[in-house]
Each structure stands twice: as C-alpha cells, then as structure tokens.
C-alpha cells in the first residue's frame, strides 16, 4: 500500500515538473535573428553568421537592413556604427566606399566585415529559396520620405534580382508596408508593433502577419489572428521554455535564438 502511494507521488511529481508536451515536428519554420543570434561568436548580420545559420539547416534568417547615402543596402543592426565597429556615425550618413571593409570589433581576434546585401546573396545562390525576413531599420532623420522610398525600392529590386522566392518585410509604419506591397505584392508584410495596433494595421491595409514577443502570445490572440488569415512570427525565443511555447501555439515562424537546439529537437 505504502509502496503504491510512494510510486503515485513520484509519478505526480515527475508529471508536474515536465514541460509542455511539445511537438517540434510542427510546421513552425525555424528562422534565426541576424544569422546565429546575438550571443554567437560570429557578429549579428555578418556573412559568416547568416551563412552558418543557413548551412546548419535553418528554414531562413532575419536580416536587419539599412541603406547608405549612395543607396547601397547594408546588413547592420544598430544605429551607431561605433556600437559594433571601429567607425563612427550612422550607415545613412556614409557612402558605401567609406564603410567598405569595415570590421566588427567587439570580439577578440575576430575580423568579420560589415556586408552589403548584394554581396550576401551573390555568395549564397544555393539558398535563394530559403525564408528571408528583412527588418527595415528607419534611423534616417529624413522627413520627406525619400530615403525610405529609395530603401524599399532597392530592397524589392534585390529580392527580384536574386530571385528570392520567400521573403517577408517587417515594418513598424504602414507607409513602408504599403510601399512594399505596391512594388512587389508577392512579398509578405508583417507588422512589428503592440498586438492590437499590429492586428488593426493588418486588417486595415491587408498585410500578411504579425511579429510579436513570444511572451505576449495568448490563445485568444492566436485565434484573433487566424480568424483573419494572418501569420504569426515570434521573437525573443531565447530559452527552452520560450521555444516550447512557440511550438505549443503553432506559430508560423520562430525567430529563435537557440537555432541548434530547435533543429536538434526537430530532427
């Protein structure tokens, strides 16, 4: 009798401690933030980081996009170059020849370069059918809209020139999304704002989805997005629990910071 009770208690403890019953074989695509993510040795948005992520078998990558003064698209996350490199100023204040060969400088003995999008896709032709999320960074103080228009125009040209078949542009402002849709209706537009604003922008302008922090997801929110055929991408999945949550909810894209772990689970 006592042995039975003891066994029951053990079973209850084990089950109460287990995580969600998660099926990592779901349709949720594995996307990686800036390549291998912020903690990896290869710098965010460097060629090496993006290429390693794709070579490891991820479904795609998220790339931060900015544009130089002479309209060259550059993969770079921060507003200030001094945050990650030895140069100063912002991307939009420099011509490409001023930042060409610029190295990321945060890590000892590492000499990886800031790259332009053309060089990235020229050297990764085998991955043109992967999923690419482009996070458009709007740091330019230009109020006329000319910089933004040129950036989106260049981005859509890049997508078309390299035959990228599966692309999403993440936007915070509706005018950027509308511009993307006007130039290339086949490119998806996801809104990255607070949930209610993102949902209303999607409904009003006919965009394709919502990018959100995984912690902000609820079943009600999932249902409200599915009712209007919106896709969902989650970010900040930097722990096992958060990755589990993304798969429990069955989101469309998991921009995970634990790509190796998730790929192992999917195998």
């Amino acid at each position: 009798m006592m042995k039975g009770i003891f066994s029951l208690v053990i079973v209850l403890i084990v089950f109460s401690c287990s995580r969600y019953d998660v099926n990592y074989d779901s349709q949720t695509k594995v996307i990686r933030h800036g390549g291998m993510g912020i903690t990896h040795e290869f710098p965010l948005n460097s060629f090496e980081s993006l290429a390693l992520c794709l070579n490891k078998g991820a479904d795609g990558v998220e790339i931060d996009v900015q544009m130089t003064k002479d309209s060259i698209l550059v993969a770079y996350h921060d507003e200030e170059l001094s945050e990650l490199t030895t140069a100063s100023g912002s991307i939009h204040n420099h011509n490409w020849n001023e930042i060409e060969n610029l190295k990321y400088s945060k890590r000892l003995y590492s000499e990886y370069e800031v790259i332009k999008l053309n060089d990235l896709f020229t050297n990764l032709p085998e991955f043109k059918d992967k999923k690419y999320f482009f996070d458009v960074k709007t740091f330019s103080p230009d109020t006329t809209g000319a910089h933004l228009q040129a950036l989106i125009s260049q981005l859509v040209s890049t997508i078309k020139n390299f035959g990228l078949t599966n692309t999403t542009v993440e936007v915070r402002k509706e005018e950027i999304g509308l511009l993307v849709k006007q130039l290339d209706p086949s490119t998806e537009v996801f809104v990255y704002r607070n949930w209610d604003k993102a949902l209303s922008m999607n409904i009003e302008y006919g965009f394709d989805g919502i990018t959100t922090d995984v912690d902000l997801l609820t079943q009600d929110r999932i249902d409200s997005a599915r009712m209007v055929d919106l896709k969902i991408a989650v970010v900040n999945t930097h722990s096992i629990e958060r990755n589990d949550l993304a798969y429990v909810f069955g989101v469309d894209y998991n921009q995970t910071d634990m790509v190796s772990y998730v790929l192992r689970k999917k195998e």
Binding site: F47, E48, A51, Y109, E113, I115, D119, L120, T122, N123
Partner: peptide
C-alpha cells in the same frame, strides 16, 4: 605576440 589563423568568407573571392 599571439598568432591567430581563422576562417572567414571573402566576398571578393566568393
């Protein structure tokens, strides 16, 4: 001194 040797991608060489 420390001699380092590391692999990277040359976008010029492809």
């Amino acid at each position: 001194q420390v001699y380092t040797s590391y692999s990277r991608c040359s976008t010029e060489l492809g």
